[in-house]
């Protein structure tokens, strides 16, 4: 093997469940060669060391969404120190499940979660990190797909941005030979959701919930009609479109937060 300088890689988290970082830890168990290819300089999930403040990260992976004003300064300082900043998972890339609350009055949400301590906690409508800083690429999914993460790192090592699928999930689902959820009387967001997960939800009998985000030009009017035809009520259609996709939906509808 030719020796190449090892890029300095760091992981950071904002509002998230850490599932995406855990997926990376999990990947390291059976791909130790990743540690030969990169030098991990910060990773709270796995080590306590930190990179000296005057050094740069070659690649900063950021998990989680921005949910309070004070997140922004930290995120911006990571951006300044990183050659590449990559959103890791649905929370960072889309805002993810954290954005469900964006359609509700914030104070109510706060009180629901923190009760009489509500005012102790700072918060604002959740947003993907690209709403705050420039993001070079994203690894989609809730959680990310471990193989796709390895692929993305490989592409970055080759000096190019990750080339990950953004075509609809149905392409993967059909290639697998799965019987379509609509033919089993259930709804699925596959036609408007980007592929890459291997269409795992339909493969085990669940309609896709869109955790990887929309394809570049989703035909939502038609998608809603298809779900309606499948017997899904309007309210449920809207809530399905808002499990992972609230932020994207609000953007498409011209409502910004």
């Amino acid at each position: 093997m030719t020796t190449r300088p090892r890029p300095k890689v760091a992981f950071f988290d904002f509002t998230s469940c850490e599932g995406c970082q855990l997926t990376v830890v999990d990947l390291l168990q059976d791909h130790p060669e990743l540690l030969d290819a990169v030098e991990i300089v910060e990773f709270r999930e796995a080590m306590s060391e930190k990179l000296p403040l005057d050094e740069r990260y070659t690649i900063a992976f950021v998990e989680g969404s921005c949910t309070r004003a004070s997140d922004e300064a930290r995120l911006k300082s990571i951006r300044e120190r990183a050659d590449f900043l990559i959103a890791l998972g649905a929370c960072a890339d889309l805002g993810g499940v954290n954005t469900i609350r964006n359609v509700m009055p914030l104070q109510e949400v706060r009180e629901y979660v923190y009760g009489d301590k509500a005012d102790w906690y700072e918060t604002y409508p959740a947003r993907p990190i690209k709403a705050v800083v420039k993001v070079d690429a994203a690894i989609p999914g809730c959680p990310i797909d471990r193989n796709e993460f390895a692929k993305a790192v490989t592409h970055l090592l080759q000096g190019r941005l990750p080339n990950l699928p953004d075509y609809p999930l149905c392409i993967e689902c059909k290639a697998l030979g799965t019987v379509c959820m609509y033919q089993r009387g259930q709804a699925c967001l596959g036609p408007v959701t980007r592929a890459g997960c291997g269409a795992i939800c339909p493969a085990v009998g669940y309609g896709c919930e869109g955790c990887r985000g929309f394809v570049p030009s989703p035909n939502l009017a038609s998608m809603r009609e298809v779900m309606r035809e499948a017997g899904v009520g309007d309210e449920e259609i809207e809530s399905r479109l808002r499990i992972f996709l609230t932020y994207q939906m609000m953007k498409l509808e011209g409502v910004t937060s």
């Binding site: 791909h31 060669e33 490989t154 080759q158 609809p168 392409i171 059909k174 290639a175 036609p191």
Partner: peptide
């Protein structure tokens, strides 16, 4: 919906894409 299901199931569609993948 541009979902591509129609071409995937078609017995005569044969269009393909070619990519290179390397290991870590």
């Amino acid at each position: 919906l541009a979902c591509g299901a129609c071409t995937q199931v078609c017995p005569t569609c044969y269009c393909f894409d070619v990519t290179d993948e390397v290991d870590l």
